[in-house]
Computed example of a mutant assay.
Amino acid sequence: MYDPLHDSCPGPQQQHHLTTPAGTIRCAKVIIASNGYSAQNLHPSVQGRTLPVLSSVVVTRPLTPIELATIKLTSQRLVMDTRALKYYFRLLPDQRLLFGGRGAITGKDADKPRYREHLLAALADTFSCLRGIQAEYFWSGWVSVALDDYPRIYSPSPGVFTSMGYCGAGVTFTQLAGQRVAQLAMGAELPALPFYQSALPRFPFARFRRLGQRLYYYVHR
């Protein structure tokens, strides 16, 4: 938890106080790298600048040789389509098919069966030979969506550094982002790329983001 009342004067000696159940940490620099799991009131400099969105995944039983030959997936690389609300899939090493897409709006609804069934229906539409196949595994997790679908690594406030807004495509990017945000915190100059030279834009009417998300899902589904 960020406590603005404990900030001293801006500058190199500014102190941040992070309050945890086990105690308080005092430091001159803070890195926010929790992406979709960041609390909305974590720090005022990033508040209202990302939207946590649930991404859900189903994993099938191992596919038979005939099913594998029919769907013609031979690579284990991730594939995604070009829809506004994308589906993505990957053949796993044990020949199971992982298939994912956007899930529930709120965390309390994440495990409801209808979201698993929605993904299975989309899987069947993508691979008609797998119609009727069931999910042996189903889970959801939060991704952080930026208003312009573009991740950032920057300093939103003195002594605060962040890497956020991956929009569900951060598995590869974060391997570099960890290095870059550390360099930034140590005062290094980052490459002249938009990732590092601009701030996350603030959502207009940020308090109504969930309503906007519901409307967006309704239109694009």
Rank of each mutant, 00 (worst) to 15 (best):
M1H: 03
Y2T: 00
L5S: 11
H6D: 10
D7T: 02
D7N: 12
C9T: 12
C9V: 12
P10G: 05
P10Y: 02
G11A: 03
G11C: 01
Q13I: 02
H16P: 02
T19W: 05
C27T: 15
C27F: 08
K29P: 07
I31R: 09
Y37L: 12
Y37H: 12
A39K: 14
Q40M: 13
L42W: 13
R49S: 09
P52T: 01
V53E: 02
V53H: 00
V53R: 08
S56I: 03
V57Y: 01
R61A: 13
P62M: 07
T64A: 09
I66L: 15
I66T: 15
L68I: 07
S75A: 11
S75E: 11
S75T: 10
S75G: 00
A84V: 14
A84I: 13
L85M: 14
L85N: 11
K86W: 12
K86Y: 13
F89E: 00
R96N: 05
L98N: 05
A104V: 06
G107P: 06
A110W: 06
A110S: 15
D111W: 08
D111P: 07
P113I: 11
R114F: 03
R116L: 10
R116W: 05
E117G: 00
H118D: 15
L119C: 05
A122V: 03
S128H: 12
E136H: 09
Y137M: 01
W139C: 03
G141K: 03
W142L: 15
V145Q: 13
V145I: 15
A146H: 01
D148Y: 09
D148N: 13
P151Q: 06
S155V: 01
G165F: 01
Y166P: 04
C167F: 03
A169C: 00
A169G: 03
T174K: 00
L176V: 10
L176D: 01
A177E: 09
A177Q: 01
G178F: 03
G178V: 09
Q183G: 11
G187P: 07
A192G: 06
P194M: 04
Q197T: 15
S198P: 04
S198R: 12
A199I: 10
L200G: 05
P201F: 04
P201R: 10
P204N: 09
F205R: 13
A206D: 09
R207Q: 15
F208L: 15
R209I: 03
R210G: 02
L211F: 14
L211E: 04
G212V: 06
L215Q: 10
L215I: 14
V219S: 02
V219T: 03
R221A: 08
